[in-house]
Structures are given as C-alpha cells and as structure tokens.
C-alpha cells in the first residue's frame, strides 16, 4: 500500500462537500484513489451490534449504489459499516473514514478488517482527519461521524440503537441539510430503536429499498425487482427478515424439511442463500 498523503482545503483534490463543515479537516489524510472522495457519494452507517437483517440490507443498499456508480462512504467499524463496505466492493467503489490515524488503525485492527481496508485502498480510499499515527479517542469518532455525513450527498442509517454514534452522523446530516433516510426495523429490537426514532420524529424518511435510494440521487434503478416464483421465491421471502434454521424455514413454508433440501441447496450453491457458521441459513 502506498503511504497516505495530506491535502489541505485549498487543494483541488480536496473533497468540496467537506467545506460545508464548520471546521473542515485540515489537512485530510488520504490513502488510495485520491479522486474517489470527490465523486457522488452516499453514506451508509449503523450500529456495530447489527442484526442479520440489518447486515443484509446494508450490503444490498451499498451494492445497488456502487453498481450505479455512487461511492459508498462508511466508517469501517464492525457490523453495519463493514457490511456496507463489503457490499460496495462487490459492485464498485467505497471510501472509509477512520476515527484515528490510518497507520494507527491498520496496526490495531483485526486481520479481517485489515484485509477489508486493503481492498478499500484498491477500489477507493481510506481517509482520516488525523495524522497517520494518531490514536483513537472518544471525541475523534464523534468528529469522524460528522465527516461521514458531510462527505456524502445522502445519508442512510441502517440500524442504530438509541445511543449510537450513527445518530451523530444523522444529526450532522440534518445540520448540513443532507437528505437523511433510516431503514425501519422491528419494534422492540434494541439495535433499531434509534433509527426508528429518527423516522418517528420526522428527522429521517423511511427508506423502503434500493430503488428509493437511487431515486433520491436522481437515478433510475438498474432494473425491475427480480421476482422469483415457486419455492425458490418463497424461501428467499421467508429468509428476508432474518436467518432461519431449516426446521423453522420448513414450518414457515408449510413444507417438510426433506422437500426443501434440493431447492435450498441450489440457492446455497448459487450464493443467494448463505449457510451461517451456526447452521442456520441467511439471505445474502
């Protein structure tokens, strides 16, 4: 990986949207494709303690945006952030905004996110407003969350409990008058309390899917919703809300588990359904 470079607000390579902030980062440290943060972007943020549903939605939204040429911005934390980066990398480009120095982050994080970071550098950029070796502090993440809001045209909160850092990003999006969307979640699930509250208070609009996200950016969705019929479609529908064990899946479909095996196996092979390490099955 190449070393990070520092750019000031006067630099033509400086992302112009960051100038909307009261105190734009100066300098901004960038590692990767320096031009990517200048392009059209959407921020997708959320909790680290995400549900299986939230992870899938983050991944799908990010993939749809990236496929339409929109850069996906997030914070490279566990949970929703990582799912958004991974989804974006499947189809396009993504930018991770770190709450500490880039070198400090890479030195401290686990192998899985270090790999993810390397892929992001290849297909986008890691950016930070702190010098490479600056350690993480509580307040550095709060500022980073605001930067994430500023860097995008549209901000989406996928899942956030009521004390989530993603709500800082939401508040900053309101201040900067960026369109703010939240993905509605089930009542009573702690991971969705904060994001649901954003919808309830009218601060955020409820996001109903990738088409709505693309429409908010003035883009048409790439195609009609894929409708799959028969058992395949019913399995995918049943798994839409959360991962299920085979017995629960069979019961929901009113089938015996053996009758399900072949269809489910085909979905696993095609990658539309993913076996979880605990033996349940999840939609990808």
């Amino acid at each position: 990986m190449s070393a990070a470079i520092a750019i000031g607000p006067a630099d033509p390579r400086y992302p112009p949207r960051l100038l909307d902030l009261a105190h734009p980062p100066d300098p901004l440290w960038v590692r990767g494709e320096i031009a990517v943060p200048l392009e059209r972007a959407v921020s997708i943020v959320g909790t680290r303690r995400a549900t299986g549903y939230g992870l899938r939605v983050a991944r799908e939204l990010a993939a749809a945006a990236a496929a339409a040429g929109i850069v996906v911005v997030s914070g490279l934390a566990q949970g929703i952030d990582s799912a958004a980066h991974e989804g974006a990398l499947e189809r396009g480009r993504t930018v991770a905004v770190l709450g500490q120095g880039i070198a400090a982050y890479l030195a401290r994080t686990n192998a899985r996110r270090r790999r993810l970071a390397a892929e992001i550098v290849r297909a986008g950029a890691l950016i930070a407003e702190y010098p490479p070796d600056a350690p993480a502090k509580d307040w550095t993440f709060a500022r980073r969350n605001a930067t994430i809001a500023a860097l995008a045209e549209v901000v989406i909160v996928v899942e956030a409990p009521s004390d989530s850092g993603a709500l800082i990003t939401a508040a900053e999006a309101r201040r900067l008058r960026r369109p703010l969307y939240a993905v509605p979640g089930p009542i009573g699930v702690a991971a969705c309390a904060g994001s649901n509250a954003l919808i309830a208070s009218g601060e955020a609009r409820a996001l109903t899917g990738a088409e709505m996200l693309l429409a908010s950016l003035g883009l048409a969705s790439d195609g009609a919703v894929r409708r799959t019929d028969g058992d395949t479609g019913r399995i995918l529908d049943a798994l839409a809300a959360s991962p299920l064990d085979p017995d629960a899946l069979a019961k929901r479909l009113g089938l015996a588990a053996p009758a399900l095996a072949q269809t489910l196996a085909r979905l696993v092979i095609s990658g539309e359904v993913r076996p979880c390490p605990d033996g349940r099955f999840a939609r990808r």
Binding site: Q78, G79, R112, V189, D245, C276
Partner: peptide, 23 residues
C-alpha cells in the same frame, strides 16, 4: 454455543455480542 453469550439467533434472549467477539 453460537457466540460467547450463547444467544445469537435465539428468539427468547437478545444476543449482546459484537461481531468481532463472535468471530
């Protein structure tokens, strides 16, 4: 168990494990 607290995917009790801890 599926995770350190044991309740990942348990409809009865909410799991409080971070993804990294599960991994």
């Amino acid at each position: 168990n599926p995770c350190p607290c044991g309740h990942l995917g348990d409809p009865a009790v909410e799991c409080r494990c971070l993804p990294d801890a599960v991994e």
